[in-house]
């Protein structure tokens, strides 16, 4: 269980993480989703004490990371696959980490096999591909058999087999009751891997909950209607929460009411429909709409200068 309270990180005048509170529960894979620079890595670095919060706190299983006696057995973190001296072999890197906790060679060999590094364990990391580096990072994270795993972009650079391996692994670990907190810029990967989502934009949590709920809430219902009476139907549907677009004659895209409501309105007016299709939103759409909202909110909320100028500034950043 990871609990963050009012977590804030400022670098000079830039606020990377802005007063966020969240809980990552055990027994599920929680995806941490957000565009580059949204504050994902900074948040994860604060969890393991590499960055100090400017304000607020974050604990794992109720304890601050830097107060743990055996941190590697509590939290396994892959934050940066390059956090390895390239002159050491994979095995030597794992041995140095294991030595700090008195973890023996047996466990080092286990995680080498587990991560599929058996054939390259005695090669220097200098020659590793990005994917091999990621596997070494995952091996290091698993070294202490931790209750909580924090993986920043773990599938970055992995081949399709590797991606499938990570997906199976994290689901399995969560199935054992562990807490798995995983960030990725691959939204499609999140949709199939994560159970819960935490969406971050510009340092703030903009949405959280089960994956399907987040997609559902963030996507406006869209209904595609084909009718010879499109113009009349559009007039009947018009209302304050309804947007009707007509991409081509005889075709409407209705945002607001669901398919049933559109069908009933059409039936009441005795209008013929040739097609009535609910178009469900994708995670990608949800993500775009969520992060777009954040940009608008921040632009207007700064309260100085004209909104146009601020939008330009936000874009420039």
């Amino acid at each position: 269980m990871i609990e963050a309270q009012s977590l804030t990180k400022r670098y000079g005048r830039t606020t990377a993480v802005d007063d966020i509170s969240f809980t990552v529960r055990p027994g599920a894979v929680t995806g941490f989703l957000g565009p580059n620079g949204a504050g994902k890595s900074t948040t994860m670095r604060m969890v393991v004490g590499l960055d100090r919060p400017s304000h607020g706190s974050v604990t794992v299983s109720g304890t601050r990371y830097d107060r743990m006696h055996a941190p590697l057995t509590e939290v396994g973190a892959l934050l940066d696959a390059k956090a390895v001296h390239p002159g050491r072999t994979a095995r030597q890197h794992l041995r140095t980490l294991a030595a700090t906790h008195g973890i023996g060679t047996k466990r080092v060999n286990e995680v080498i096999e587990l991560a599929g590094l058996g054939s390259v364990a005695n090669k220097r990391v200098k020659g590793f591909s990005l994917g091999m580096g990621q596997r070494l990072g995952i091996a290091a994270a698993l070294l202490g058999d931790p209750h909580t795993l924090i993986l920043d972009e773990p599938v970055n650079g992995l081949d399709p087999e590797g991606v499938a391996w990570v997906r199976t692994l994290v689901k399995h670990l969560a199935g054992e009751g562990r807490t798995v907190f995983l960030s990725s810029h691959l939204m499609s990967e999140m949709a199939v891997t994560a159970d819960h989502l935490l969406v971050i934009g510009r340092g703030r949590i903009v949405e959280q909950g089960p994956v399907q709920d987040v997609i559902g809430r963030a996507t406006r219902t869209t209904v595609r209607v084909r009718s010879p009476h499109a113009t009349e139907l559009a007039a009947l549907l018009a209302g304050p929460d309804v947007v009707v677009e007509a991409p081509e004659p005889g075709l409407l895209e209705v945002h607001g009411p669901n398919a049933a409501a559109v069908g009933e309105i059409a039936a009441a007016a005795r209008l013929v429909l040739h097609e009535l299709t609910p178009v469900s939103g994708s995670l990608e759409e949800a993500y775009m709409s969520l992060t777009a909202d954040v940009v608008e909110y921040r632009s207007g909320g700064d309260g100085q200068g004209s909104p146009t100028d601020l939008t330009a500034t936000e874009v420039a950043r």
Partner: peptide, 23 residues
């Protein structure tokens, strides 16, 4: 080859890590 491996690795007896702490 590696997909079933997590089971072994994760469920391995905890005794290997008994006494693991930083000194």
């Amino acid at each position: 080859t590696t997909a079933p491996a997590p089971a072994d690795g994760a469920r391995r007896p905890r005794s290997t890590l008994d006494g693991a702490r930083v000194t």
